[in-house]
């Protein structure tokens, strides 16, 4: 079990990052919040606890890499990068504006800390493979982390990447499947039932771990034991809640993309501010 202080700190960071997400929605009036919020705890744990990155030097050669295959979840990445200090938080207020550094899908040439131009689903795992392979070729020990959505798994390019990652023994590659169970058209099992996800990856030569992807303790336990199996890529199947943290939006496909109303946005901001003060108190009590 991960250290209590470590967990308390990450929970607080995650709540602050959720505030950043709301700040962008406030600026743009909308956003793909569902998947951003379901995966945000994982992204927070990676950047604030696990990854070797330096906001002052985002292109540092030996840095760990992170990319979102499901690029539409970029609000999570923008929120965490901002909180981590990769760029000024005022940039968050440009979301949805023309020529913003934080477009609807991430652009590696616009924003420091973004590693790939993703958004077309099913591309991310192949790109992550390439980064991990390059690390092996160069004898470097950085790791590559990628998040894919569950709805994205029917895309065949994922399975091409899965076969290749196993063949090349990429144990420096970690892929999280953000298994929030909902995609834009509804319940993933109704749109295209891709279960059992874990058995598929095992049959494709991966080590598989199964966790609650909104539980910081479980996220840290999984991250602490990577690679799950030497010589194999790791897949962490994360059960998550879509739109996690929006009391009125959790587990609703309608919040895949949220056209925010003033009223609900006010409510969300208020609830998140309360959560942040509560978590701050909890953290202090542990000191």
């Amino acid at each position: 079990m991960a250290d209590k202080k470590r967990v308390a700190n990450l929970k607080l960071q995650a709540a602050k990052c959720r505030q950043n997400v709301l700040r962008m929605v406030r600026a743009g009036g909308h956003g793909h919040v569902g998947g951003a919020l379901s995966s945000l705890d994982i992204v927070t744990a990676l950047y604030f606890d696990k990854m070797n990155v330096d906001p002052e030097n985002p292109k540092m050669e030996d840095r760990d890499r992170f990319l979102l295959s499901a690029g539409h979840k970029c609000l999570a990445q923008y929120a965490v990068l901002a909180e981590k200090g990769f760029f000024d938080k005022e940039v968050l207020d440009t979301y949805g504006k023309l020529a913003a550094k934080i477009p609807g899908h991430p652009d590696m040439h616009k924003l420091p800390g973004v590693e790939a131009n993703t958004g077309a689903l099913g591309h991310g795992m192949s790109i992550a493979n390439g980064m991990a392979m390059a690390g092996k070729l160069d004898g470097k020990d950085y790791k590559v982390y990628a998040i894919t959505g569950d709805g994205e798994l029917p895309e065949g390019s994922n399975w091409e990447a899965a076969v290749a990652a196993a063949k090349f023994g990429l144990d420096n590659l970690v892929v999280f499947v953000d298994n929030n169970g909902l995609q834009i058209s509804g319940d993933v099992t109704k749109v295209m039932d891709m279960r059992p996800i874990d058995e598929k990856f095992k049959a494709f030569g991966w080590a598989v771990k199964y966790i609650d992807g909104n539980d910081m303790n479980q996220i840290l336990d999984a991250l602490d034991s990577i690679p799950e199996e030497k010589g194999k890529p790791t897949m962490i199947l994360c059960d998550t809640v879509k739109a996690k943290g929006l009391s009125f939006g959790e587990n609703k496909a309608g919040f895949h993309f949220w056209n925010a109303t003033e009223e609900l946005l006010d409510q969300a901001e208020k609830e998140m501010a309360e959560l942040v003060s509560k978590l701050e108190k909890e953290k202090e009590e542990l000191v």
């Binding site: 065949g156 390019s157 399975w159 091409e160 076969v163 295209m192 891709m194």
Partner: peptide, 15 residues
């Protein structure tokens, strides 16, 4: 069967 499309089709047929 290294082609990804095979698994797109397989997933559909199974589902």
């Amino acid at each position: 069967i290294q082609e990804g499309q095979v698994w797109e089709a397989a997933m559909f047929a199974g589902a």
